[in-house]
Write a protein that binds this DNA or RNA. Structure first.
Lengths: 320, 320
DNA sequence: TCGAAGGCGGCAACCGTTTGCAGGAAGCTT
DNA sequence: AAGCTTCCTGCAAACGGTTGCCGCCTTCGA
């Protein structure tokens, strides 16, 4: 078995409480004693048991991070940024994947609740009501979702969508498809609302779709049949799948149809044609979410991060 | 505060030990009492505190999963498979990313040690010695690394590399570059050993390199200068970066240089040209690793999974 | 009618750590 | 030299569960 606080106490001839203080409140113990304890601890390979500590303090120094799909390249940069940022504050981040399943999401939150000080909920698939209910068990910060009174980090997808649609309009496109994501998704709603504000566009709504490459492949048929000359896709994965599906049908991108994605993930940059997309500040979002969670004073704090259009090769002039 | 076992005991008029047994050993308590307890628990929204339970039982029902880089698309499928498999056994998987940094890796293992029943170490960057030392604190299963006496899940990269090189040889390639990964990597070593066995090939070793797209981009210059007609890359990310780097220099793939990767990640399938690669059974590896960890009887169990060559568009006949 | 067996549930110690309280020693002030 | 701080350290009660042990009550067989 690994050494406990009692072993160290015995080895250094002091009471356990002194050992405890040596680690959690060093300034309260005499330097001489402290170094004796530290020597003994080092000798025995002692490390405080975080779980036991959590039992009395109520703080675990762990953060839960729940994402819908870890395989979506959008999330890893966010996760890495959050982990690195948290590490700097002596916190650890545990990541879990819900497989896009709200039930798994709820179960995960429940079991995580007692083992972490708070949860970062990224692009949740749960209903607002369910989230509000669970918030009684554990503090949340939500990313990419707006829930009244709950701290959130948002990315300005509305602005991004307008930029994208303006760009398409400037290229002469009139009839544009909006390929949305899962039905519970806040991002989809925002995109649609923004699109409605851009004048002179003839919108075709296609969805809901899976937010993956498969979803894009599956909707290619509908896009081809819809007679649009441009598409704004829910995310880059969908856009890439869609481009693949269109080219299988002999439809050239951007020759016949222009495609814009969301997120700016790596595969989009490597793809041919390189994907025009709305860049989402994922790293910044990860860091902000951690900050919001740890300060936690700012109850309903709301942070909105900027998005930007990155024009590459998958968009071109409308060809009628 | 959330309800504890004592609240439930009071509400249902029994002793806490009875409540405890209702959840952890239901057959020891009278059905009538049991349902009364369950009703009270449900009423109060009680859920056993896993961390507290772990304190006495020594089992957390958590598994740690440590990867070098969560942003590498190779890992997410492995992670998802491990999580899903573990969930079926009532275990939860916590994922953490080391940023390819051995020091972070060690620190992560140390803090994880007491909060999980075991750790899955995927493509570790730590030295064998360091891992063996840490194994005293927590049970390991290593993925993609062979350490004497430690349970491991391996993918047969040697076989994959031979298939790839045979394929290149059959296409008439003679001078082939081996673009390796990080210096501590077991996979790199295996690749090199396998390559040495294939007769009639003139090998150029280039490395170590970062196992990322950037690594591939950076090595493109050397590849172009080396005069090879084909490349076997450490992984798909490197291969994709390399193809990008080569095309920036006006070198056509596969026209002038053939490129083979490892892993079979999604972006490789979407890339133009589609990447020829050695497919690694990541999902199976994730599941096997969980199994090995949980049975844990099979001390030095060793599982080797098959790999397969997938020929797509990034390889072609040697053009001298 | 009695004893034994078995089912059920209470008691209390324990897991590893923190922390409020109190007391002793030393140092400082008058 | 007495009294007051200040600094340090020990004591013991938590935190939320689990579990070995023991005793009570039924039930059953002879």
């Amino acid at each position: 078995m690994t050494a406990t606080i009692r072993d160290v106490a015995r080895a250094s001839g002091v009471h356990v409480s002194t050992v405890s203080r040596t680690f959690s409140a060093p300034h309260l113990v005499n330097p001489a004693t402290r170094s004796r304890v530290l020597a003994a601890a080092d000798d025995l390979g002692y490390r405080p048991n975080r779980a036991a500590r959590a039992l009395t303090t109520g703080r675990t120094f762990n953060i839960g991070l729940i994402v819908a799909d870890i395989a979506n390249p959008f999330f890893p940069p966010l996760i890495k940024a959050a982990q690195a940022h948290a590490r700097g504050r002596d916190y650890h981040v545990f990541v879990a994947d819900t497989d896009e399943d709200p039930r798994v999401e709820e179960e995960l939150i429940r079991t995580l609740a007692k083992q972490v000080d708070g949860v970062l909920l990224c692009s949740p698939r749960l209903s607002n009501r369910a989230i509000e209910r669970l918030a009684e068990d554990v503090p949340f910060v939500v990313v990419n979702r707006r829930i009244k009174g709950m701290p959130a980090v948002l990315m300005d997808v509305g602005h991004g969508a307008r930029l994208a649609l303006d760009h398409l309009a400037a290229l002469g496109h009139r009839r544009v498809a909006l390929v949305s994501g899962p039905s519970g998704s806040w991002t989809s709603t925002e995109m649609r609302a923004a699109a409605a504000e851009v004048p002179g566009l003839d919108l075709v709504l296609l969805g809901p779709n899976q937010p993956t490459e498969e979803g894009g492949l599956a909707v290619a048929e509908d896009v081809a049949a819809s007679g649009v000359t441009a598409v704004l896709a829910y995310n880059d994965l969908v856009a890439l799948g869609l481009i693949e599906g269109l080219s299988e049908r002999g439809v050239d991108v951007p020759g016949q149809v222009s495609v814009i994605g969301f997120d700016d993930i790596l595969p989009g940059r490597l793809n041919r044609p390189k994907l025009t997309t709305v860049a989402m500040p994922a790293e910044a979002a990860g860091r902000m979410a951690v900050d919001l969670l740890l300060q936690s004073g700012g109850e309903g704090a709301l942070v909105t991060l900027d998005t930007a259009l990155i024009v590459r090769e998958s968009t071109g002039r409308a060809h009628t």
